[in-house]
Simulated assay, not measured.
Amino acid sequence: MPDVYYLTFREARMLLSRRGTVKINLDLRKTSRTWEVEAGEEGVIFPDGTFVERRIVERIERDRGTVYFVANGNVYKAAIAGEHYYKLVPTIPPTIEINGIRMHRTKDVNPLQDTRNKVGAVKPKEGETVLDTCMGLGYTAIEASKRGAYVITIEKDPNVIELARINPWSRELFTGGRIQVIHGDAFEVVKKFKPESFDVIIHDPPRFSLAGELYSQKFYEELFRILKPGGRMFHYVGNPGKRYRKKDLQKGVIERLRKAGFTGVKRVEDALGVVARKTFSSNSG
């Protein structure tokens, strides 16, 4: 794999303020490793010999909301434009933004802690099988696999998968060996799993307005069917609209989960979601 160097406004600012050999982290702080970059009046030279003009580094320094990367002698924006606009945002670790909407909580908590709160709500164990219904950048799947679980994760959007391949914090999705990535629509994919296939389900869907079917009674019944007796589920809900429109989406979710057969359904405030259990065997074939 060719060398890839990642830049945000932080690294650009450092390179613009110094001259000579600069030791700098170039993997979005995924590790504490540093690389040596030569900074001069005209621009900077990366370890593989790529020269990047000063005006481009200045442009990166002014862009506080985007991740850039240097590869194959060129500078790229970690963004994809199509029907929607996708980009990596330089939080640590990065989050993904789709049409200006961030896919992780970034206020008062970073995406990694947000993930640990969600996974910690159901505590996957060594040897268990986990379903992560909506992969995104894969932080949930990676965290669950680090706890010794085997993880199946589903992602509908090929652009999200592409950004995950670009993001160094998502690398274990494709190299770890304990994670299987399925490209497909979770609403349809779950129907193909055998009954009682998973010890843990982590359901972190897009907001209700974007994927209402993933909050539906029918979908919850499928999740109940594929969860093992004694299995646990965490469902991220958030609090969209509660403050301004007097709506409580969590309340509706709790009611539908109970109707689907789940027990022990309760809110988990620090993870902005609910947990539920399956306490008896399904009669499904």
Rank of each mutant, 00 (worst) to 15 (best):
V190D: 01
P124T: 07
G264A: 07
G285N: 13
A81T: 13
G136L: 02
P205T: 09
V275E: 07
V52N: 09
P195G: 10
A186Y: 00
V275Y: 02
L214R: 03
R178I: 00
E41F: 05
R232V: 01
E83A: 10
T175P: 03
V44K: 12
D157I: 00
R258C: 09
C134L: 10
A211V: 04
Y85C: 06
Y139F: 13
G138N: 02
K30H: 09
V237E: 00
A39V: 01
K218T: 15
V181M: 00
Y6A: 11
T21Q: 14
Y85S: 14
A81Y: 01
G73Q: 09
R243W: 03
W35T: 04
T263W: 01
E97H: 02
G238I: 04
E172G: 01
L249I: 15
E188C: 01
P47Q: 11
I179C: 00
K125R: 15
H183N: 12
G148V: 06
E41P: 07
M233C: 10
A79G: 04
A260G: 12
K123P: 02
Y68V: 06
V37Y: 00
G127Q: 07
E38Y: 08
Y68D: 05
G285P: 14
N239Y: 10
S17W: 00
I154P: 01
R102Y: 08
I92K: 06
D270H: 11
V274K: 02
A276R: 06
R147K: 10
G40R: 09
R147T: 01
G184N: 05
K87Y: 04
V130H: 04
Q250I: 14
R207I: 03
P90Q: 07
V4Q: 11
Y244G: 15
Y6P: 13
L88P: 07
E61R: 14
V181S: 00
G49W: 02
A164M: 02
E53G: 14
A78G: 12
K156C: 00
G230L: 05
R29D: 14
T175Q: 13
N72Q: 08
K247Y: 03
K251G: 07
N239M: 03
A71M: 13
G138L: 01
M233S: 06
E58N: 11
I201S: 03
L7R: 03
I179K: 00
L88A: 10
F69G: 06
V44A: 11
F219L: 09
T95P: 05
G120Q: 05
R258S: 12
E42S: 13
F224R: 15
A211D: 12
D248V: 10
G20K: 04
T91I: 03
N117S: 09
R55S: 15
S284L: 05
A211Y: 02
H104M: 08
Y68G: 11
F51Q: 11
T34I: 15
D199Q: 08
N110W: 03
E196R: 13
E61A: 15
I142P: 05
